[in-house]
Design a protein around this nucleic acid. Structure first.
Lengths: 227, 227, 227, 227
DNA sequence: TATGAATGAGTATTCATTCAT
DNA sequence: AATGAATGAATACTCATTCAT
């Protein structure tokens, strides 16, 4: 699914400046980028049903053939877009929480970290809410929706790690279950908050509510005392 | 959207055999029923993309023309199915909570009612989880997704009424926001719990977690003391 | 093609008031009339492609079945409309020229009669030009377009008779050919004059030109001296 | 409407073999040609109602998709056919009358030129009278029938120019009106003469009659003295 | 590699016509 | 006679995908 730019990698001379490959590679990259960008635009403008590969190619300034050089089929475009979105979320999470390995580096309590994460994700979604709407709501399931993408898995694991770090603060016994609740809740409520018609309040208030909801469940601390 | 079988209904004498009208009416009804049933089956088996009106007609044992006699277009089939689902949920809610007007009739606390509701909805969804998956996840948005169907609105209002009834127990200040959080959370978590791969635990445990999550948020009571 | 109202005609008692039949017959007639009226309206509003029997029935306030009771198929509706139009033209012609049998009754010269005829037909066409446009321009040919309807034949014959009456004034030798020229010319130019965008002048001026054209051909008299 | 084969045409060196482009261009051209040819055949055989794009494609030995690559919709096929016909008539007219700019080149009188034109058009129509019948009689009007195609306009203008050239011979005062009469008359009578059942005489005689008709109107000269 | 012309299976929808009531 | 629900063949048009150049 994930396009592997047909690069004949592993050249015999790794130390040299790689005279040909870099240009080629970057050209491929630019192509893939242009195609995905066009896909996002078309998807945003016309929805899933209105999106077709020929149009995407045209918008990307490329021929259809080139699209198929990098993506095996239409759905791969969407998958890649989804993947890219997941990667952005992953990056935003890393920025908000720090890496799990750097233990002790972040001494805030769970609730504070939750707040950071919700904040970061809300911000990331506000960039192109319409695109996310299509991605999340109109994206037909595929044959194997069961196991999500590696990146989605990564997000799940990072959250699981977060809960583990704060084991002492977490009330629910089953960490798997708690992780599931947290992932599902964040995903759906953040989307619901950002996608029109959205929450009946400001994004900040909605974010606050999401934090309250999760903190209440995880820490048995329903609502932080107002400062 | 909802097909109104051209029936001259509601005769004043329910005890008599109603020679002509009932057959016709029931025939229309049966047709609509068969069509929706077939739609559900096809949708379940082949997903949104694989569903087409000709196949639905064939599966329903009617002609395409008949499908179009009762439904203006393909999406109307899905809308009707969605509506029917919403109606079932509404009914399940009424059964679980009683009517809001019968004040004082139900003296249980908010958390108990939440538990009943979650229980009822989980049960209702376990009947045809695959269908619900398609309905919720693959259903493309329409032109006016902003305000949901009247039935969806009814559900929202009933929940709002529930929170109002228990005003004294509810911690969050903004009732609109609280309603929004509750509706979104229930919808997404119940679906996530039922649709494969589902929650990493039994449906009961998942239900319990959902109740904990909401009760914690609403009542500031994270977790009921174990009995 | 022409609907023969299923009347069991020739009752044994022609002198009696015919208790049942008259109502029935007039009812049939009214029905046929309503259907044709509806056809004309629909045809005018939506053109040939947009006209369908179900819509015609609805507009006529009748069931489709009834339409098929009186007209064997869709094209029969158009044929009947065409026939009706031809009959109107025939009548207008009779009024303008008088009956051919009443020889000597009309002592005007050929040109004067031509002028009357053109005048009468132009007037008749100005009533519903849009309908005529559809009837003449959008009306697909049928299997047997070769020989026109009896009424069309009648018109041809009356014109032939007119030329015969004025044999002495008519220059062209071949009366068949002269008739053909006259019929074709009148038909096409009158339609062209009336149907938008029509002639680049008033209908009167166009009528005058048509008379000039025909009189010039038939009588060798290109243009009447201005009075 | 007219398909513009996406060709980068007109290389600067017409004498060279033009290795790549010509093949492509000519392939497109051949395709368009084949499609139009097939359309004409189908139209002739089955009439407008019986003509459908799939059949046209099949007859042309191409896929439906290719038809839609070059023609936006079904009606465009007919429009193109009509346009082609108009172009042929235009060319025939040029051949018969010479270019209007080459003043003095053609010293014949108006009647002679009329005769040439009628002759040329009759000949051009005798090639595929059935096709012309469909094209002229069954061709449904479109949204903008008001102003005809540029080619049709060209024909109108050339005739207007002809009348202007012979201003001194022309009797009718209003040149616009005279042009209108001439165009309408030629069009309808030539078609009527050629399309079965046609005129009640030879095409030559019919042509003669058309010339008489028009010359009588335009020149006040009803009939040329027999030689 | 890139191109984009060509393919053709697939699909929503229409509508003339029938026939049981 | 009248009804109008049911039929289903027919059809315009789309678009993912391929492959010769």
């Amino acid at each position: 699914m994930i396009p592997v730019a047909n690069s004949r990698s592993d050249s015999p001379m790794p130390s040299l400046p790689q005279p040909r490959r870099i240009p080629r590679q970057s050209r491929s990259r630019a192509l893939v980028e242009a195609i995905l960008e066009a896909t996002a635009r078309v998807l945003t403008e016309r929805g899933y049903a209105g999106t077709n590969t020929n149009l995407v190619a045209e918008r990307a300034g490329v021929s259809v053939g080139s699209v198929y050089q990098y993506f095996p089929n239409k759905d791969a475009l969407l998958t890649a877009l989804h993947e890219r979105h997941a990667a952005e979320m992953h990056a935003a999470m890393e920025r908000a929480l720090g890496s799990p390995s750097a233990a002790g580096a972040d001494t805030r309590d769970l609730r504070s970290k939750l707040a950071s994460l919700v904040q970061a994700w809300l911000a990331a979604h506000r960039v192109a809410p319409e695109l996310h709407r299509v991605l999340e709501k109109e994206f037909p399931f595929f044959d194997a929706p069961a196991d999500q993408s590696p990146t989605d898995q990564g997000i799940r694991q990072r959250i699981r790690a977060l809960l583990d770090e704060h084991r002492s603060e977490v009330v629910p016994q089953d960490p798997e279950l708690a992780t599931w609740v947290m992932v599902q809740t964040m995903e759906s409520l953040i989307h619901a908050a950002v996608i029109p018609p959205g929450a009946p309040c400001s994004a900040e208030a909605a974010g606050q509510a999401i934090v309250d909801l999760l903190a209440g469940y995880l820490c048995g601390q329903a609502r932080r005392a107002l400062p």
